[in-house]
Simulated scan of single mutants.
Amino acid sequence: MPQVSRSYSVAMLVTLVAAARSSPLLDLRFGDDRPLDMAGWQAVERALPVLAPLAAAELRYCSPTPCARQTGDVLGLAPLAQPALRDCDMGRWSGHTLREVTAREPAAVDAWYSDPRSAPHGGEPLVSFVARVGNWLDTRPMGADGWVVAVAEAAVIRAAMLYVLKAPPQAYWRTEVHPLSVVSISGVTGRWNLRLG
């Protein structure tokens, strides 16, 4: 019987960690570029015993924001900033809360929620944001151990989950990621699986 040769891609594990908070929930701002607040520092320090093993990954990244960098540093990751892991570009809404923007531009906010291809803020549409994060996943170099860790804003992790599950863009609004949540993605380029637990 002839032998059949099969080539398999080596699976990779990408562990995504949501950055600790940089502000209270009611003061969350689009494009928030603030460092960790006191509660954020304390939360990372409390989580350190559980999350410290992530520093064993050969490849460690973070979004370019101060809160993601600081979260990674406290966890002992010494992460390399990745521009592709930045939060969604919210254009002229950057620096403002959802409440402020809704008071000024209610129709634009409605359009943003209802049409994932729209960018009424002049920034990046949701579908482009999800595609950017997905492209980052698909182009990750694999270290010897096949494990990549990245710290990023909750929005980036939500976009990654949408990409992996091939979920409709509207599912983005139905996904919650809390500070210091951990989500793992395994597989190979184009064939990812969400791993919980």
Rank of each mutant, 00 (worst) to 15 (best):
V156M: 03
E153F: 02
V164L: 08
A107M: 04
G76D: 11
E176H: 10
V4T: 12
S5F: 11
A119K: 05
L48R: 13
L126C: 04
P24S: 13
D110Q: 10
A167V: 04
R69Y: 13
S186Q: 15
T102S: 15
D32Q: 08
L98R: 08
T175R: 11
A52V: 14
Q170E: 14
L80M: 11
A152K: 01
E45L: 14
Q70I: 12
D115W: 00
V133T: 03
Y163I: 06
G123M: 07
R29S: 08
D33S: 13
K166I: 00
W173D: 12
V127D: 04
V14N: 08
D145F: 04
I157K: 02
T97G: 01
T65N: 05
L137N: 01
Q42P: 01
L51F: 03
A155P: 01
A55K: 14
A131Y: 03
D115P: 02
A167Q: 08
V164M: 07
V156Q: 03
P49D: 12
M161S: 09
S7T: 15
L85C: 05
R6D: 13
W112E: 04
G95V: 08
V44E: 05
P179L: 09
V101P: 01
Y172F: 15
V130G: 02
K166D: 13
A160Y: 08
D73P: 00
L16K: 08
R132D: 05
Y163N: 03
R46D: 14
A131W: 09
R195L: 14
P83M: 07
N193Y: 11
R29K: 14
S184K: 13
P2V: 14
A160G: 02
S7I: 15
A152P: 00
A103E: 13
T15G: 04
S5M: 09
V156G: 04
R92M: 08
V44R: 04
P168N: 06
L28P: 00
G76Y: 06
H178F: 11
G123H: 05
R69I: 15
E100W: 05
A160P: 06
D37A: 02
V109T: 00
V151M: 04
G72F: 04
L85V: 01
A111F: 05
V164P: 03
A154K: 01
V164S: 07
A55I: 04
M1S: 14
E100F: 06
T97A: 01
D27L: 14
S23F: 09
M142K: 01
E100L: 09
C88Q: 14
R99D: 12
G143I: 06
V151S: 02
S184I: 07
L165P: 02
V151E: 00
W192A: 04
S128W: 01
R21E: 15
P66C: 08
D145S: 00
P35L: 10
Y163S: 08
A111R: 15
W173L: 10
A57T: 06
V130S: 04
V14H: 09
S184P: 00
V177E: 07
V183I: 12
D89N: 11
L51S: 00
G91L: 02
S128H: 11
A152N: 04
R132C: 09
V14T: 10
R99N: 11
H178Y: 13
P79K: 06
E100R: 03
A107P: 01
C62T: 07
